[in-house]
Design a protein around this nucleic acid. Sequence first.
DNA 1: AAAAATTGCTCTATCGTTTGTGCTCTCAAA
DNA 2: TTTGAGAGCACAAACGATAGAGCAATTTTT
Lengths: 355, 355
Amino acid sequence: MQKSTADSSHKTKTAPLTIKDIAQELGVSATTVSRVLAGKAKEHRISDETAKQVIELSKRKNFTPNAIARGLRLLKTHTIGLLIPDISNPFFAGLARNVTEGLHRHGYSIILCDSQDDLAMERQLLDLLWSRQVDGMIIAPVGQQASHVADLARMPKPVVMVDRFFSDLKIPYVSSDNFLGAKQAMECFFENGHRKIACLKGLSGSAPAEERLRGYRQALSQHGLEVDESLIRGDAFGEQSGYVETKLLLKRRRDFTGIFAMSNLIASGALTALEEEGVRVPEDISLIAFDEQPYLSHFNPPLTTIAQPVERIGDTVVKILLSQMKSPDQPQTEGILLPTSLVRRKSVARIGPAV
Amino acid sequence: MQKSTADSSHKTKTAPLTIKDIAQELGVSATTVSRVLAGKAKEHRISDETAKQVIELSKRKNFTPNAIARGLRLLKTHTIGLLIPDISNPFFAGLARNVTEGLHRHGYSIILCDSQDDLAMERQLLDLLWSRQVDGMIIAPVGQQASHVADLARMPKPVVMVDRFFSDLKIPYVSSDNFLGAKQAMECFFENGHRKIACLKGLSGSAPAEERLRGYRQALSQHGLEVDESLIRGDAFGEQSGYVETKLLLKRRRDFTGIFAMSNLIASGALTALEEEGVRVPEDISLIAFDEQPYLSHFNPPLTTIAQPVERIGDTVVKILLSQMKSPDQPQTEGILLPTSLVRRKSVARIGPAV
DNA sequence: AAAAATTGCTCTATCGTTTGTGCTCTCAAA
DNA sequence: TTTGAGAGCACAAACGATAGAGCAATTTTT
């Protein structure tokens, strides 16, 4: 075994460099190196010559200061916690992509936590994020219980909620205007003559589900139609829920002509059930789903959807978080609702005059 | 402004607790608190009484030791870097979910980096991850260039490649058996009488694209068919590529009867193009895509696909990484290829006797 | 030529934990 | 009454980077 000199033929593990190593090799102090690398050379009257040497050697040795040590000293980690219920849900994946990119541009990294829509897990992950000294958090809480989220408002670091939120907490949030979205979906049904429309609900108690339900109800009322409670079914945003509830609904009755699905996953499950039961879409039953994805245009039939402005949501969340981190004591934005839009495709049939 | 006592009505930001605060309040040393919280009370002869008090107070104050300070002292952050080309690609989203969960169960958090399939970004993110002192990395490199990835082999921390990999580097990898997958797709075409099959390629130089191409070629040869190079088109895994290449292909010729798309995104783009050109699937042209997703069964037509064992890939990656972290000097697994499977749906038409 | 200002750094303490070493008791055995 | 062993903890030094204060040269001013 040789003594040291990097032997690149084998997997020679190089010991991590420190600022001291650089300093020693140049015969300067660690402070100097730190200041040069922080771009504060001028400010601290480091000679151009010294600065150049430090930079060059660092580059040559591929040295970057230990961010952990830095974080400890500065009490700032340049890390943001991102907590979402399910990264494999395209809506959240898109959001994660957007947020990750936006924050990266401002020098922040993100720690990704997937709560799997589990409250206990969520609580645990929140503790974990704090223990990791994140500078801020972006969370899409499971959404049914607020107590542990409420504690976040007392934390010394900014937090922003997204999608799932609690409007009564003193924590800013960004979301689609779910109420509006539901009404847009319903209006589309009405225009095409539908009046009996089932609602496949998402997680009860969560803001998106409740707001969408409110839109559903109000749209019916405004058109002088009665809300049939037995047409409101389901309690989760997943595919399973869409499948099961549609199955049950179809066993019981067939007098409704439209289904409003609160997520694309629910819609997907519903489609499976409809197919199994030999119900054609949209000839027998029309369908509108929340959440737009490009591939939905290849569905059979191409799905009419309510599109959420995912990018705008992500951008806004990032903007709020950055601004809160810059000036923690400014008045907080209370909550922002971004408008949805209807994407008309072919899953809604005209069955009569507009209501 | 009151002095201190947490005033929960307002957003009173509580100063972060430290181990010293706990120690002081109990009249013991920080050492003792640390040892109790690390579960080393017995080992260090801390009385049950003291231990109980420490635990209780910590719980009551919701205290968790500062992981940053811990990381600095222990030179171990319990953080893993996850670098992928695009989190909004369902394949990687699924992988991320799996990996995140698996690592979390072992006490590790993940820092998510999305390179957006950009080499420069990838290089930058790798530096960033090292500077954050991750204990290990899971990377799906862009895949065209290996030099910066090769450096990883010399790092003192374990790295595992996934999906996109370089087999000649001394870094373990886990991936689908892309070669096999392509052959499975081709066999399905052959069984149904197809002999002229176009290939919509992914990113040139990346292992998945090259291996799938190899499978495509070999399958043709084995059946005594000539490889028509002009039927091999495209250079990216995205939707755009699928769309554009299909358009171009259709302008030029219509003598092929099948399309092998190297990703579901490519397939999606191809479908759009086919539709625009009035080509019916599968009546006029059959289609098989790599990457399975449940919703593909709702496509028009339901897509026949090659399914990658995403969960097994994720589990395996995690297993390898954990084992490398436990015993860094053990012989490394060189590379693991997991079998794919054909999901038969309705996008392949029978057009003659099997070849 | 002496005082003042400027240049170009270095020294030291610090962030919050953990660890090796060592200190002070108490109680029993010799 | 001294010695020894164990129990129960505290002290101080690290981990790597940074901010404030300070200090020796050199240059400028008067």
